[in-house]
Write a protein that binds this DNA or RNA. Sequence first.
DNA 1: CTGAAAGCGCTAACAC
DNA 2: GTGTTAGCGCTTTCAG
Lengths: 342, 342
Amino acid sequence: MAKRKAFRIRDIARESGASLTTVSLVLNQRDERISESTRQRVLAAAQRLGYQPSRLAQGLQSQKTGILAVLVPELQHVFADVYFGELLSAIHDHASAVNYKVLLEVAHPDFVSQAKHIELFDRDYVDGVLCIGVTNKDDYLVDFEDRSRPAIIVNNHLPARKLNFVRCDYEEAGRLAAQYLLGLGHRRFGLIHGAPEVQTSLDWRAGVLMALAAAGIGPTPDHLADGLYTEEGGFDAAIELLRRDPAITAILTGNDKMAIGALRGIKKSGRGVPLDVSVVGCDGIHLSAFTDPALTTVHTPLYDIGREACRLLLDLVDNRIDRAEVVRPVSLTVRESAAPAT
Amino acid sequence: MAKRKAFRIRDIARESGASLTTVSLVLNQRDERISESTRQRVLAAAQRLGYQPSRLAQGLQSQKTGILAVLVPELQHVFADVYFGELLSAIHDHASAVNYKVLLEVAHPDFVSQAKHIELFDRDYVDGVLCIGVTNKDDYLVDFEDRSRPAIIVNNHLPARKLNFVRCDYEEAGRLAAQYLLGLGHRRFGLIHGAPEVQTSLDWRAGVLMALAAAGIGPTPDHLADGLYTEEGGFDAAIELLRRDPAITAILTGNDKMAIGALRGIKKSGRGVPLDVSVVGCDGIHLSAFTDPALTTVHTPLYDIGREACRLLLDLVDNRIDRAEVVRPVSLTVRESAAPAT
DNA sequence: CTGAAAGCGCTAACAC
DNA sequence: GTGTTAGCGCTTTCAG
C-alpha cells in the first residue's frame, strides 16, 4: 500500500514539458504572455495529477499564511458555549467562504509570560487574530497594538486601548430593556449583570441605570447581583435579589443564560413569571425562544458581528483599511416573560 | 507608530556576532560542539530580541506544520454542541500541551468535489486530521486511507473502511442500559436511537436489542423511533412511542440530549418519570446531572476519547505506531430517572 | 569549534 | 513566448 504523496510544481513541469516558471505563471493567471497551447497542456497536467500548491512554500514567499486565529478565553467548556459557538460559526463561515482557514488558540493564564500570543504572529502561524471573550484584565492585548499584523476584538472593546473592535451596543441593550419594563409600569427592579471585568457588562449596566435614573429611579446596591454569565449564577442571583427586596417586580439580566437561570430562581422563590415578576434577557440565543415562558430579550446580532469582524480583519490584513471600530444596533424581541406591573 | 516586525534568525546572528548555522545549532540544542561562551551570547541575543523561529520556514524544511486539523460535520450550531465541544476541548488541550495548534475544518457537502479535505494534506496545512461526527455516508474518508499523512476517526468507526479510530463501546453502552432496566423488572421498552447513518448509533441499538433478546424480549418496529440526536427529536419520539404502545414502562435513548427531550415528552404525555416510565440516556454530559429527575445514563468518557485520539494521531504522525484501533469501556451512572417497574 | 552552501517549494524579476 | 535565477527563513551536511 503505497502512501500517496502530494504532487509538486516540478511534477507538473515535467509532466507538461514546461518550466517551473511557466507552470507558476499559468496557475496564477499571470499568463497573458503564455501561448494558449502550453497553457492548456499545463492546466491539463495539473488537473490530472490533482496538483495543489504548498501553502508553506507560498507563504514563505508571500509572507501570508491564509490562516486566521480565533483566541478564546480559558473557561469551562468554552467550545460548548452557544455564545462562543455562534461567533465561531460566523467567523468560520466567512473565513472559509474567502478561502481562509481558522486556527484555534486558548488564552491560558501563562500566556503572556510565554509570549504565546505573539507567537501566532512572530512564528508566522496566522495573518490576523480575532479575540473573543476578552476582559479588561487581559493585559496581553497591548502586545497586539503595534504589531505588523492586525488583531480585532469581537463583540467587546477596551476603553483604555487603541484596538480594533466590532461589537453591538450593550448600553443601548440595557436602555431598551429598562425602558420597555418602565413602559409596562414597573418601578422596582433587580439587575443581574455579568462579570464586571467584561466591558460590555459594564456598558449594559450603565444603560439600564441611565434609563432608570431618567425615570427618577435609583436602585440601591441591594438591587444588583453578579450572575457570572451562567445559568447557575442567574438562578442564585434571582433568589438573592428577591430575598433582599421581595417587592421587586422586574428583573433584567445581562445575558440569556442568566435569564434562564433567573426564571427557575424566581419560581423557586415562589413567584410566577411574568405574573409576579417580569424578566428581560439579553442576546436572543436560540434557546431563549423555547423557555417557559418564552423569554423577552434584547437581540444582539452575534452572527453578524462575527462575520463582520472576520470581514474587517481581512480588510486590515490586506491594508484596505487601517482602523476598525464598529458598533451595531440591537433590538427588543418581545415574547412572554415580561408583563405589565400589577 | 512603527509596526514591529518579528525578528529573524539573521538578526540574532548579527546581534550575537555568530553565523546562521551556529545560531540554529544552539537554538536546536544540537550544540555539543559549540563553545559555552558563544552559546551564551546567542541565547542572550535571542532572549533579548524575543526571537521565535518562523514555522513557515521550519515547516518547508521539515515537511511538518505543527498543526492538526479537526474536521467537523456541517450541522446547525456544531460549535455550540456539548458533544463536539467536549471533544474539541480535549483535543485542543492535549495538542497545545505538546505544542501543536488546532485548525478547524467543516466538512461541507461540496467538500469531496473540490477535494478540500485532501487540500489539508496536499497543501501542507496540517500534519494529521481528527474526524469527528462522521457517518457511514462520508465517502470522502476513503481519500484519507492511503495518504502519506494520517487521519483518525474520533468516537466512531466505519466497518467498511480501514481507518484509524478511537471510540467507546456503544454496543456495551446499549447492553448496560438494557440490562439495568431488565434488572429493575421492566419488560416493555421504547428505543430512541440517533441517526442510523452513524455507526455508533447502530452499535448502541444492536447492544440494546441483543440484551433484550437474551431476556426473551423482541420489540417490534413500533418500539423504535429516530430521535435525530436532538432534544426536539427525543421529545417527539417519546410522545410517539407512548402513543403507539401506552404500556411501555422504560425508554432508552442513544444520547443524553434525546433523553432530556424524552423527559419532557413523557411528562407531556401525562406520565411521571420514573414512576410511570423509566429513562436511561447515554453519554453522561454535564447537564445530565442537573435535569429533573437527574438522568440515569451510560457514561462515555468523551474527554478521554478526545485526548487519546489526539495522542495516537501524533504517534501516527511521528511513525511511533502505524495503526490505531482503540475501544474504550463505558460505565453506568445511576441517578434518579430509572426505577423498578411497578 | 565554526561557517559556507545546498535545498525545502514556490514566485517574480530578468534574460533570451 | 519561455526559461534561468535569486530569494523567502530555516536546517543540515560538509569543509575548514
